[in-house]
């Protein structure tokens, strides 16, 4: 048979890209809710963190197909509300920003905007493989591959797509982090704004954010 097979060429990341990714490793810094040294503050923070972990207002940003898992998580079968998790309608009220699935660059802009409009302490739960490494869209030209290059992420829930049990597990992890004072990277984001902005501007073509970062 003389016909040439239609071979789909998979482009792998170049070495340069991989090195760049290693250099640009997302910054880590102390979370806002960390337990203080002072004994009095400790108690207050403990109580506050307890309240925070049991009262998670969830802004589920249904970016991708994973959004379908959220209703299941919240409704009768899995009943996330017993953990204090309930939906919030606007970023002003929300504590948790949940990115459900792949994130196109067009959507990224909105996600960043929403994230910036949330109030500290705020948490980001990245849902599904797509937010970790691009997942099945790893070679797409217009989805982002690693979410935490653009906004700080507290908890990843791996899987494509993760079942509600996994989501609940992820929330449990988030609650644990909150109680320990290790969650909530709003301050970190603000501190490293230049780094994040640089990354964001790389992918967002029609950049029209206000110059000043207003929460």
């Amino acid at each position: 048979m003389s016909e040439t097979k239609d071979i789909r060429i998979i482009t792998r990341p170049t070495k340069e890209q991989i090195r760049q990714a290693q250099i640009d490793f997302a910054p880590r810094c102390t979370a806002a809710g960390r337990v203080n040294d002072k004994e009095t503050q400790k108690m207050v923070q403990y109580i506050l963190n307890f309240a925070r972990k049991h009262s998670l207002f969830l802004l589920a940003y249904g970016t991708g197909c994973g959004a379908i898992e959220i209703p299941a998580t919240l409704t009768s079968r899995y009943d996330a509300e017993r953990l204090g998790i309930r939906g919030a309608a606007t970023p002003r009220q929300a504590d948790v920003l949940m990115i459900t699935g792949y994130l196109s660059t067009k959507t990224l802009k909105r996600v960043i905007r929403v994230y910036e409009q949330m109030q500290d302490p705020k948490y980001v739960v990245a849902f599904g493989s797509c937010t970790i490494n691009g997942g099945m869209y790893f070679d797409s030209y217009n989805t982002i591959k690693a979410l935490d290059r653009y906004i700080p992420v507290d908890v990843y829930i791996a899987g494509c797509m993760p079942r509600p049990e996994a989501v609940l597990k992820g929330f449990a992890k988030l609650q644990e982090l909150i109680q320990n004072g290790n969650a909530g990277n709003g301050e970190c984001y603000r501190k490293n704004l230049d780094w994040y902005r640089a990354n964001q501007q790389k992918v967002i073509k029609n950049w029209d954010f206000p110059d000043e970062y207003n929460w």
Binding site: P91, K109, R110, V111, R113, Q117, D120, D208, N214
Partner: peptide, 18 residues
Amino acid sequence: NTRWLTTKEISTSGEIPA
């Protein structure tokens, strides 16, 4: 830690109004 925003910075839809 209370910021006073302008009326342009509203939370709806994540869009940035011109």
